[in-house]
């Protein structure tokens, strides 16, 4: 069927129009690049230590700062209410849908990955890109301490 819009949602367009309709005239300026860094995997996936990084927080009143927490046992749930996921269409009751620690444990026991890193990391979603970049270094230090071979980022 011919159509006038993309099939996949453009969140840049949607959020700009949404906030404009709310009376915010200055649209958010997204970071934009035409190239990206690249670091090859140092070893086969089956030998990699994999860490998860999420945008969810440990609790609704947690301080807005990066954090780490033990990967096992996986937390029962995390705080996600403050994030801009589609609350009418789905839910975040199932950690496996956005922070698949238990799935990675299973994949490690099957030998598909080497192991799950002892900690996962979280970074709040904030307006300021400068703050995000500063926090990214805090996350990097934690992952480096844990000798992580591959970081899997699963933003909500």
């Amino acid at each position: 069927m011919p159509k006038a819009n993309r099939t996949f949602v453009s969140y840049i367009d949607k959020s700009r129009e949404y906030y404009a309709a709310q009376g915010y005239d200055a649209p958010y300026t997204w970071a934009s690049h035409t190239d990206a860094p690249f670091e090859p995997l140092a070893k086969p996936l089956s030998e990699c230590r994999v860490a998860l990084v999420t945008t969810a927080l440990l609790s609704a009143d947690a301080r807005l700062e990066p954090y780490t927490a033990p990967s096992q046992p996986a937390p029962e749930s995390l705080a996600t209410e403050h994030l801009f996921w589609h609350k009418e269409a789905t839910n975040t009751d199932d950690l496996g849908a956005y922070l698949p620690l238990d799935h990675l444990t299973a994949l490690a026991s099957e030998g598909i990955i080497g192991s799950l890193a002892p900690r996962f990391a979280g970074i709040p979603t904030v307006y300021s890109q400068r703050r995000t970049n500063r926090w990214a270094e805090t996350i990097r230090e934690a992952l480096a301490e844990d000798d992580v071979d591959l970081a899997v980022l699963t933003p909500l």
Partner: peptide, 10 residues
């Protein structure tokens, strides 16, 4: 839908 990047909840 945003919120379930790794697969549908449940």
């Amino acid at each position: 839908p945003l919120g379930n990047p790794v697969g549908p909840s449940g």
